[in-house]
Amino acid sequence: MTTALFEVGQRVRIADRTPPAHHRVPGYAKGQVGFIERVCGLHGDPEKFIRGDGKPPRRIYRVRIPQAELWQAYSGATGDQLEIEIFEHWLELAE
């Protein structure tokens, strides 16, 4: 097991890019900043399955983003949140 780059509670930014391959980051989450909610396991890299076997595997994190930061004019409660699974190579530490 490789060591996890990020830990619970760290503030991270999700990359805003669109590789020419199947990837598992929906458009609304690209470029967004959130907190690591949970460090998960290593899984096959979806971008490496189209030609290959998904290796090397990548670690998944659950990232928690306040809904009010995600959507303009969000109408729900200020405590509403969204949590999403993001592979490690899509994350960087945010200021």
Partner: peptide, 29 residues
């Protein structure tokens, strides 16, 4: 995008004292 509106259509009415947490199952969990 609008979880409270969708939940209300399912009959779930939530006050502001209840936070909604949406889980987007985008990968392997």
């Amino acid at each position: 995008r609008e979880p409270r509106a969708v939940l209300a259509e399912f009959g779930v009415e939530l006050g502001d004292d209840v936070n909604v947490r949406v889980h987007d199952s985008t990968a392997e969990l």
